[in-house]
Design a binder for these strands. Sequence first.
DNA 1: TCTGGGGTCCTAGGACCC
DNA 2: TCTGGGGTCCTAGGACCC
Length: 433
Amino acid sequence: MLYDNEPRGVYFLIDNKSFYASIECTTRGLNPLKTALVVMSDQANTNGGLILATSPLAKQRYGLQANVSRQRDLPQDDRLLVVPPRMTLYIQRNLAINAIFRRFTAPATLWPYSIDESILDMTATWRLFGTTPRAAAQCIQRTVQDELGLYTTIGIGENPLQAKLALDLLAKHTPDLIGSLSFDSIPEKLWTITTLTDVWSIAHRTAKRLRRLHITSLYALAHTDPAVLKVEFGLIGTQLFALSWGIDRSQLAVRPVTRAPSLGNSQVLPRDYAEAAQIEVVIKEIAEQVAARLRHHRQQAGTLSLSIGFSYAASETTGRTGFSHAMRIPPTDQNGPLVAAALTLFHTHWHGEVIRNIAITTSHLSAATGEQLNLFEPVRTQLHRTDLARVTDEIRTRFGFTKLVYAKSKLLGGTAINRASLVGGHNGGNAYE
DNA sequence: TCTGGGGTCCTAGGACCC
DNA sequence: TCTGGGGTCCTAGGACCC
């Protein structure tokens, strides 16, 4: 029949409910489900606070939805705990959770997907932990809760895509925080979805283009001629069609190769910048930060890209939101050439616009050769902690090196010091701060 | 949504090569 | 040199994810 040739297995997509907020609760001896708490990043350029996470009770009691992201939207209430982020702690907890997951499936079939999500291929092992996949999922939930005090949400599917859709669309609305999707239940559970942007891989722009084709539900998507989708969306159209039928042929043990790895840093400036000299200072700082991270990872960059975002006013005046240009450079991890390349691009393409955003990204990365070895980096330590390193590498591969990097201490000068301890743009919660 | 930050992937069009 | 064809590589821009 229709799905006869599709691979079928038992996959879990596990995410941590209100991850950052829950960790902040547990470290305070509070129950994550019974505490109203938000994690708020308050750096100089967040204009008075960016909400990173909200506990379930805080959402419920104060009507805070996912789109509440600013401090100014928060109610003034002493019962609402507002705490700064500790990114380093969250990364440690992520590693601990994945260590638990490895008791339930083999390392090769565990794929850390983000700071708070992992995919497990449970096909070969679920029977060891319950009479049904759902019972096995509950076993994992209990283990994580007993050992770390955290609540997990689990999507179950016959392939990774179904597990992800089950998590996002179903699990979060069930009492036991488990949702499942199978080929059989696609019509009932998936095709009835009409809020397209709820679906993984469909955001505002894609939903709008689908609407133009009069596609306003997953049912309609599944019953559109794939050739039409192909013409409209290219490869993405084919993927959308497969998604609507719950089809995903990927295998966790066959890791996708990252085609073009990149490493970079960006920042929204705390205010508009109009003067070349001031902009140059920040460009230099960011380029040096990127260089430091390249060295930390023993990588050299063969391309440097500079992106400049204009202020809103300048965007309106010029009709452009900014620009982005790249140049090839001899592979390097040194401050000097990277700063020089960034400044060259800036002077070539900047014509006096007032700006608000700067990004420097390096690509065409290659392994730095032997003489670049940093004496202060314990290479052997990583080799010996293979299990930990494995997960670490996976997260880096998937999300970028930065998720597990603390770019502290070595950076020079000015405002860079303020940002040096940030992890993923937010407070790392490390001792030096 | 008047600006968080770090990533990956896709595509059209141009440069260049044989 | 008034217009070959096929291929690769690169870039800028767009879109999405967490």
